[in-house]
Design a protein around this nucleic acid. Structure first.
Lengths: 102, 102
DNA sequence: TCATTATATGCACATATTATCATATAAGCA
DNA sequence: TGCTTATATGATAATATGTGCATATAATGA
């Protein structure tokens, strides 16, 4: 059975864990996810709210989408992004709380 | 008050959060921390257990030490490393469990 | 003091990552 | 169809990262 304290980490788990933490290890992606924590946002809304280029936001959203950390719904030409992994978002929230208390 | 869902992340919190997740975003560092989860280990013991160079282990331990994620105690010429941040270790454990269930 | 063992450090190299520009695609509407 | 708006993509350059070699440091014991 899966147990994080068992002898060895299998390589697939190791890969997923490192990829996911890597996704959370960049300030821009953290800011995007933190923004989405409160409400779904279009790509342009994110770019404006965080003052970063549209293409940068789009690239990072693709990254997060590949890891299934965000999803989107379409409304005309606008794509509204929102979190797609509650557990990872909870982990992000925990780390932010942890860091802001230090 | 600190609240992970408040409007903006201050830059210091953002920095700490991203640095900490970055620390967890590398397979070698994850393996080291996962090993230390079970028992304190010397540098050489880690290198042997994980089959990586001593200098690599030392470099990564310095990285983790700078973030206060590990600490050590000396016994003669041997340094025994162990986790130094329970909360971050708990977060790592959560992510491993999350990943191994997917 | 000298040799040995354990660990740390400086440097170099290969690779990965990030942001940006320019441009492509896609949907909606006149 | 052609125009506009929203988003995605490819290429590129600057920077960051991870590893290993060679060597330094530090503690111990003969």
């Amino acid at each position: 059975m899966e147990n994080s304290s068992s002898e060895d980490l299998d390589s697939e788990t190791l890969f997923i864990v490192s990829q996911t933490f890597k996704a959370l290890g960049d300030p821009t992606r953290i800011r995007i996810l933190h923004l989405l924590f409160k409400k779904e946002c279009s790509v342009n809304a994110i770019a404006e709210a965080l003052d970063i280029r549209q293409s940068t936001v789009s690239h990072q959203l693709r990254f997060l989408k590949n890891l299934r950390l965000v999803k989107y719904r379409r409304e005309g030409t606008t794509l509204y992004y929102s979190p797609d992994d509650e557990h990872v978002m909870l982990i992000l929230k925990q780390m932010i709380d942890h860091a802001s208390h230090s």
